[in-house]
């Protein structure tokens, strides 16, 4: 088992390196840097000025070198400008160059500085991640149990009226992306035009003080889209298990229907949905970005939009690293859980 996890982790690290490099490469393309220079300096910079600005800040080094520095495996650049003042990646303003550490990158905990928020990237991400964590916690709490119940109930008697009704619900929710359902919910429950006004159309206040009124709509919006998908998976898996020969064996052993479902079918039927739930994370992140934008909840997804929209390279890189890691960790958990749930796979 340890061997298996180690191998998975090795693959995971390789994947993370590849992915962050792709992000690094794309964000450090010259047009992006040019835009950065102009937003940092002024918009009427000439090409030459742009170049000298970028050169001074170490942006014109080869992308591999820059990536190594950002990662913290290569020493940070030190460039002396015309006045003989050394500027360097690791040299904080006002710090003598000799005191600066040689390497400063993600591995050393130095995630850079956000040009939009004027704050340390690491700090921003920590703060935003906590907010999104809160959102995700409630989403999972709502989504997973209701999806499983829905799926099991529908798959228990395949083709029955309950099945048809529940399946239609599930299909409808999978066909409703967050930006549609969110808009519909706000229109129905929060607009003056309809006038129900049960919930709030923004969740900004939920950042500090989440209540049912200001938090339920965003949570529901994310949960609903994923729920249909998991429910359909569970239903298919359950329906398949219910036609299996060993379920017939159990029935002809005289086991009651309730016990057939609970003792014999459930564990087998939950293997497939479990992996699906875990693999939903990259997808849920989509939902998070949309919903946080829609409800103006300033969490991780909202930050991603801000960083990308304003060409805040360091922040965008930080956000990417975190989202990639979250995705990979959930994949690892899904693999391990699968082995644990399914006794047919033995890890010796």
């Amino acid at each position: 088992m340890t061997m298996f996890i180690l191998r998975r982790i090795a693959v995971m690290i390789l994947t993370a390196l590849c992915l962050t490099f792709i992000v690094f490469f794309l964000t450090n393309l010259y047009p992006n840097l040019e835009k950065l220079a102009k937003t940092q300096g002024n918009f009427r910079m000439s090409d030459g000025e742009v170049e000298s600005y970028l050169g001074k800040n170490g942006y014109l080094q080869p992308v591999g070198v820059k990536y190594g520095q950002w990662l913290g495996v290569l020493p940070g650049y030190v460039i002396e400008d015309n006045e003989g003042v050394a500027r360097g990646r690791c040299i904080e303003p006002g710090m003598p160059p000799e005191d600066a550490p040689r390497r400063c990158g993600v591995l050393q905990g130095d995630w850079g500085y956000s040009t939009v928020f004027k704050k340390d990237v690491f700090e921003i991400i920590g703060e935003k991640l906590a907010l999104t964590g809160k959102l995700m916690f409630w989403v999972m709490l709502l989504m997973v149990p209701s999806a499983l119940v829905l799926g099991v109930l529908a798959g228990m008697h395949e083709g029955s009226r309950t099945d048809r009704a529940l399946s239609t619900v599930a299909i409808t929710t999978t066909a409703t992306p967050e930006y549609v359902s969110g808009v519909l919910f706000i229109a129905v429950f929060a607009s003056t035009a309809v006038g129900l006004k049960w919930f709030k159309g923004t969740a900004t206040s939920a950042m500090n003080d989440a209540t049912f009124e200001n938090f339920f709509l965003p949570v529901l919006t994310i949960a609903l889209y994923g729920m249909g998908y998991i429910a359909r998976m569970t239903r298919a898996s359950m329906a398949e298990v219910m036609t299996a020969q060993y379920i017939r064996t159990a029935r002809l052993k005289g086991v009651s229907f309730y016990n057939i479902v609970v003792k014999h079918a459930l564990r087998n039927a939950l293997i497939a949905p479990f992996t699906v739930i875990m693999l939903q994370f990259p997808w849920l992140l989509n939902g998070v970005v949309i919903v946080e934008t829609l409800f103006n909840y300033k969490g991780f997804g909202w930050t991603l939009v801000q960083a990308a929209g304003n060409n805040d390279i360091e922040l965008l890189l930080g956000v990417s690293v975190i989202s990639v890691i979250v995705v990979l960790v959930t994949q690892l958990i899904s693999d391990i859980g699968y082995v644990y749930l399914n006794p047919r796979i033995s890890v010796s």
Binding site: L29, P31, P282, W283, N286, I290, V324, L328
Partner: peptide, 21 residues
């Protein structure tokens, strides 16, 4: 493993179109 939205934000921008990628 790439969050789709991140990919879109990185790929579908006028700057990227300029690079020809």
């Amino acid at each position: 493993a790439f969050p789709v939205i991140l990919l879109f934000y990185l790929l579908v921008t006028p700057e990227i179109v300029l690079t020809g990628i």
